[in-house]
Simulated scan of single mutants.
Amino acid sequence: MAWNEPGNNGKNNDPWKQGGRNQGPPDLDEVFRNLGKKFGGIFGGKGGNSGSSSGGGGSALFGVILVVAILVWGLSGFYTIKDAERGVVLRFGQYHTEVGAGIHWKPTFIDTVTPVNTQEVRSLRADGFMLTQDQNLVRVTFEVQYRIFNARQYLFSVVDADRSLREATDAALRFVIGHSIMDDVLTRGREVVRQNTRQELESVITPYNMGIALVDVNFRDARPPEEVREAFDDAISAQEDQERFVQEAQAYAREIEPRARGQVNRVMQEAEAYKQQIVLKAQGEVARFEQLLPQYLAAPKVTRDRMYLETMEYVYGNTSKILVDVKNSNNLMYLPLDQLMKQGAAAAPSASPSSSPARVNMDGINTQPRTDSTRGTSTRSGSGR
Rank of each mutant, 00 (worst) to 15 (best):
V326Y: 01
A168G: 01
Y274F: 04
A347R: 14
D234M: 08
L309Y: 14
D160C: 03
G56F: 15
I322E: 01
N218G: 07
M130V: 14
W105D: 06
T197A: 04
S157I: 04
A84D: 09
F149Y: 15
A273C: 05
S350D: 15
Q247W: 04
E5L: 15
T141H: 05
T114N: 09
V279G: 00
L337H: 04
L297D: 02
T114W: 04
T169A: 10
D29H: 14
S50K: 13
N9H: 11
N13W: 15
R306S: 09
D325L: 09
R194V: 12
F289E: 12
N34E: 02
Y316K: 13
G47H: 13
G211M: 04
T319Q: 08
T197H: 02
I65R: 10
P225H: 00
K327D: 07
G55R: 11
M307H: 07
A238M: 12
I212R: 00
N196A: 09
G20K: 04
P353G: 02
A253C: 04
A161L: 06
G284E: 09
E248I: 10
A84G: 03
V158R: 05
D184M: 01
S180R: 14
Y146R: 07
A287V: 06
Y79C: 07
P224Q: 03
D338W: 12
D363E: 08
T311V: 08
E230N: 00
A171I: 09
V144I: 08
Q119V: 05
P115M: 06
F156R: 11
G63P: 09
I212N: 01
K321W: 07
I322N: 00
R288M: 05
S320R: 15
A161H: 06
K342T: 08
M268E: 13
I81A: 02
A273G: 08
N49A: 07
Q343Y: 13
L71G: 10
G24R: 04
F232R: 02
V88N: 04
R306K: 11
K281P: 00
T80C: 07
D305V: 11
S237R: 15
R254S: 10
T303L: 06
Q23S: 02
S59G: 02
D162Q: 12
T118W: 05
Y208A: 12
F175R: 15
E310D: 10
G56C: 15
A348M: 13
S356W: 00
P26T: 02
G87D: 10
Q195Y: 09
V315I: 14
F142G: 04
P369C: 07
V204L: 14
G77W: 09
T379K: 13
R375V: 15
Y334G: 12
L173N: 03
M341I: 14
V116W: 01
V88D: 02
V113M: 09
